[in-house]
């Protein structure tokens, strides 16, 4: 039970009397004056409010009308001119700066130092990944990538906090529920042509995404791009079949558990480096022959984790911005 008093009980308390006195209801005012005071604040019905809104709108229109406001006309013209000049100057500055860059492939460039040499010369030997970029971001700099995955996770949570609608306070709930459980009302739904083609294409897109993720250490690609492809496939499925069918396999709970397990696995895979003095290259896991799918130690697992997080993030962003709820 709530501790809130009923109106009758409340009217007997001292607090009620105090606030009543503050509002001035108790003070003595002669009858005629009271009536005048009542007249001071006219009771507005809807039509007068509408009129006043119209007047306000007309005043705003008058201010923003170019014929009556010479200054605005001048400003609008100058705005375009100044914007164009600003862009030209910016482009000229940037192009001028490019002229000072050292030519491509020069020997004495500042970024041609021992770090790059090490990556290129010993990359395959130490990480076992044919694709040097993947070997770099998921083995030499694995903690950076862990931070990036966490940034995606935090971004999704922020969007969830900002955009999620409260289920009880959703507007016109009964009206919305008729239209396939609060899908956007006026959008075309159940397009048979689109559904037929999506039935073919979504599995192909998914398989292609999985191929890109699993081949991350052999060919360009990897967790981020493969995850983006899988997310795009999920978005296509959602657009073709509607929210109701997509919610059968992907809800907020799915998102939570997939992100949790992927990030935890990543963290556990790289946690051993705390015990080897931040030297996380030597993991005692056989690296295998470079070029095979099952090679290069932990990179494959880390790629899968990153891909899952990215795919879930893309899909969740899309759903939140379209509907505001799972």
């Amino acid at each position: 039970m709530s501790r809130r008093k009923t109106d009758e009980e409340y009217s007997k308390t001292k607090a009620y009397k105090f606030f009543k006195w503050l509002r001035g209801e108790n003070s003595y005012i002669p009858e005629e004056t009271r009536m005048d005071m009542g007249l001071l604040i006219p009771i507005e019905d809807d039509s007068t409010i509408k009129e006043r809104m119209n007047e306000k709108q007309m005043a705003i229109d008058k201010v923003y009308d170019e014929d009556s406001n010479k200054l605005l006309k001048f400003f609008n013209k100058m705005y375009r001119v100044v914007a164009a000049m600003f862009l030209v100057i910016l482009a000229a500055l940037l192009i001028y700066n490019v002229a000072f860059l050292p030519p491509v492939g020069e020997r004495d460039k500042p970024d041609n130092n021992e770090v790059t040499e090490r990556y290129i010369e010993k990359g395959i030997e130490e990480t076992g990944a044919v694709n040097i970029v993947t070997g770099m971001i998921l083995d030499y700099r694995a903690f950076d990538t862990f931070g990036e995955s966490n940034v995606l996770f935090v971004a999704t949570i922020t969007v969830l906090i900002l955009l999620r609608l409260n289920k009880d306070k959703r507007p016109d709930r009964d009206e919305l529920e008729d239209h396939e459980s609060s899908d956007r009302i006026y959008e075309p739904k159940n397009d048979v042509i689109l559904q037929t083609v999506a039935g073919f294409l979504v599995p192909i897109i998914m398989i292609f995404g999985i191929y890109v993720i699993l081949n991350g250490h052999l060919s360009p690609g990897g967790g981020f791009s493969g995850g983006a492809i899988i997310g795009a496939g999920l978005i296509l499925y959602l657009n073709a079949f509607g929210f109701e069918k997509a919610e059968r396999f992907f809800t907020e709970k799915t998102y939570k558990w997939i992100s949790f397990f992927a990030l935890t696995t990543y963290c556990l895979c790289k946690a051993y480096s705390f015990f080897c003095g931040a030297n996380h290259l030597d993991s005692h896991i056989p690296l295998g022959t470079p070029g095979a799918i099952l090679s290069s130690g932990l990179i494959l697992i880390l790629n899968i984790c990153v891909g899952l997080v990215v795919a879930c993030t893309m899909y969740t962003f899309y759903v939140m911005f379209r509907k505001g709820d799972f």
């Binding site: 075309p188 073919f200 294409l201 192909i204």
Partner: peptide, 16 residues
């Protein structure tokens, strides 16, 4: 093959 699937559907949606 992908374009043979997707291009007619895109045209259908645009006409719609």
């Amino acid at each position: 093959v992908f374009l043979w699937f997707s291009s007619p559907v895109a045209s259908h949606l645009l006409a719609n």
